[in-house]
Design a protein around this nucleic acid. Structure first.
Lengths: 119, 119
DNA sequence: TCGTCATACTTGCAAAATGAAAGCATTATG
DNA sequence: CATAATGCTTTCATTTTGCAAGTATGACGA
């Protein structure tokens, strides 16, 4: 198979710019955070303190799915409602979240970690 | 001095959410990247391959200034045009950029580092 | 000092994204 | 079976983005 072409919509070959095209907004990394924290179901995400609008949540889950960061799996409890899980590519974002968390804790007054990450 | 209150506009005390309110968009961290790479003047930023619109660049430099991440300094070459520099708070974002860079390099096809960071 | 070019923005506007609210299937529960 | 919970979609006002053009100031050579 030929070498896959880089996305023509990409702004530059910079890995940072490329990442920001994917999760450079106010919500996407919070969804990833919730997944790291063990969220699986739609309502889990809406229960987070930031209260993401449901239309944005649906959109973000879809986008993350399209980019191989999230997959739908059968719910562990046998429910037929969809459950979401991080892929390896999604789990690999953990160091990004940790770096941002550390920065926030050090430089932004009044921030604190709310729970421990699952895993 | 009394304990400073947390920003009432803050979505939650989560350091991640707080950081995203500041740099959760497609451009802000690219501006920080350019500063790490040694950019100082307005035109330096516009010369980057992503070609940030000038109205957004002006807005982002202002916001970063208001949040103590960037300061205006006298230009090293004696010019009276403004020069921008990262503060310690801004330099502290370096691990965030590095984590995102590493993620992009590993998971996003065709990305590559364009230059070496200054400093 | 005058003219010219570069720099550093600001303004205007169309298009896209955001976010609040309500609506509505489908699934679970008593 | 009735009712509630879940997982979305739709609507629409507001905000943000991004392109293009305009403008004001600084730098520089004649």
């Amino acid at each position: 198979m030929a070498t896959p072409k880089p996305d023509p919509a990409r702004r530059s070959p910079c890995p940072l710019a490329c990442g920001l095209d994917l999760f450079g907004d106010r919500w996407t990394l919070l969804v990833v955070r919730d997944l790291v924290f063990g969220a699986e179901r739609f309502k889990d995400f809406t229960a987070s303190p930031e209260h993401i609008p449901t239309n944005l949540l649906a959109d973000r889950l879809k986008r993350l799915g399209e980019h191989g960061i999230v997959v739908q799996v059968a719910a562990a409890d046998g429910s037929r409602h969809p459950a979401y899980r991080l892929t390896a590519k999604g789990e690999a974002l953990r160091p990004v979240l940790e770096a941002m968390r550390d920065w926030g804790l050090k430089w932004e007054e009044g921030t604190r970690v709310l729970k421990k990450a699952a895993g």
